[in-house]
Design a protein around this nucleic acid. Sequence first.
DNA 1: GTTCGACCGAAAAACCAATTTGGTCGATTA
DNA 2: TAATCGACCAAATTGGTTTTTCGGTCGAAC
Lengths: 197, 197
Amino acid sequence: METTIDIKDDVSEIILNSAKTIFARYGFKKTTMDEIAQAARKGKSSIYHYFKSKEDIFKAIVEKEADELSAAIAKAINAETTSEKKIRAYVLARMKGINNLTNLYSALKDEYLEHYSFIENVRVKYDTEEVNTIKGILKTGVEDGEFKIEDINLTAFALVTALKGLEYPLFIKNNNAKTEKRFEGLLNVLFYGIIAR
Amino acid sequence: METTIDIKDDVSEIILNSAKTIFARYGFKKTTMDEIAQAARKGKSSIYHYFKSKEDIFKAIVEKEADELSAAIAKAINAETTSEKKIRAYVLARMKGINNLTNLYSALKDEYLEHYSFIENVRVKYDTEEVNTIKGILKTGVEDGEFKIEDINLTAFALVTALKGLEYPLFIKNNNAKTEKRFEGLLNVLFYGIIAR
DNA sequence: GTTCGACCGAAAAACCAATTTGGTCGATTA
DNA sequence: TAATCGACCAAATTGGTTTTTCGGTCGAAC
C-alpha cells in the first residue's frame, strides 16, 4: 500500500513538515519565512499561496498535532468498556501523547510568556475539549451507577487541571518508566479516596 | 500591651515595610533604592547597613510573608483533631492566605517571567515545606487508621500540585464566596473518591 | 493553478549619547 | 561600636536616530 506516491505529499504538507522542524528548533519568532521556504524548496512568495501568514502555518501545525492526540485518546477510550477503565485509558493516552508534543513545546516555552494570544486560544479550545471528554465519561459513569459524584462539572474541571499541573513535574522532569505506575496510584486516589473503610 | 514602642519598630522592619508598599505598587525593577530610602526616611547608603542589596530586601519581604502564611496554616491545622479535618483546615487556610499575597504577587506577575531566579528559589523551598506538611498529616492519618494510602509521598505531592494548579482558575479569577464550597466538593472527592458503593 | 522576483512598510536591531541607579567608601556623628 | 550620609563610580537603562530585517503584497510568467 505504498507503491504509489503518498497522497499526503501535498505541497501544503511539505511546507507544514518543513516548518515544524524549524519551529521546533528555533521557536516561532526566530523562524523566518525565508527559512521555511528554503526548507520546503520553494520561493518565499509561494508559501503564501498555501497559507495566509506565518501565524497560520503555526496554527495549522499545532492543530494537526492536537487533532492527532485527540484521535489517539478517543481510540484508547473507545477500546474500554467501563467508565473507570475509560478514565484510566484517557489519562494514560494523554500522558503518552503529551510526550510527543514535547519538541514543539520546549522550543516555545521561552516565547510562551510573550503575548502570542493565538497560542493561548488554541490551548483554551483544547482544554475545553478535554473537560468535555472527561465530563462525558463521568456522566455516563454516574448514569450507570458506577460513579457517585456531587458536581460533575467541577470534578471534571478539577481532574483536568490537576492532570495538567502534574504533567510538568511528573513527566517532563522525571521521564522514566515508573511514571506510569505513579499515575496509576493517583487514579486509585481519585476512584477510591484516601479514607479507610 | 501597646504602651511602649513596639519592639518591631526596628529600622530593618521600617525599611521592609516601606519597601513592601513600593514593590507592591511598582514591582521589583521599577522600584529604586532611593525611593525605598526616602520612604524609610533614610539616606540611600544607610539602607545598605541593614541589607546587602535590593534583591536581599525583596527576598526578606517574600520570606516574611511566606513565614506568616506558614504560621497561619500551622495554627489552623493544630486547632483541628482528626486528620481529615486537618487537611480541610489546611486547604482553607492556604486558600485564604494566598489571597493576601495577591498584592505583592500581582505587581510581580509581569516580571515573573524574567529570570529572577531567586523568586523561583523561594518558591521551591516553600513547595517542599508544603509537601512535608501534608505528608505529615497523611502519615498520621494512616497510622491512626483513618486513612488508607498506597504511596504517601506521591499522594502528598499530587495534592499540593493539584491545589496549586487549581489556585489560579478557581480563586484568582473567580473570587466569590462560592469558591469555598467548591473546594469542599473537591475535598470530598479526595477523601471518598468517585466510585459508587 | 503554481511559482517567483521585485518591492513596500512596519518592526526589530544596532548604535550612540545622556541619564539613572545599584552599590562602595571614607568621613562624621552619637 | 553602631548608624548615617555625601560624594563618587561603574554598569545598566533610557531616549532617540539610523539601518537592517522580515512578513507580506503584486504582477508577471509558466
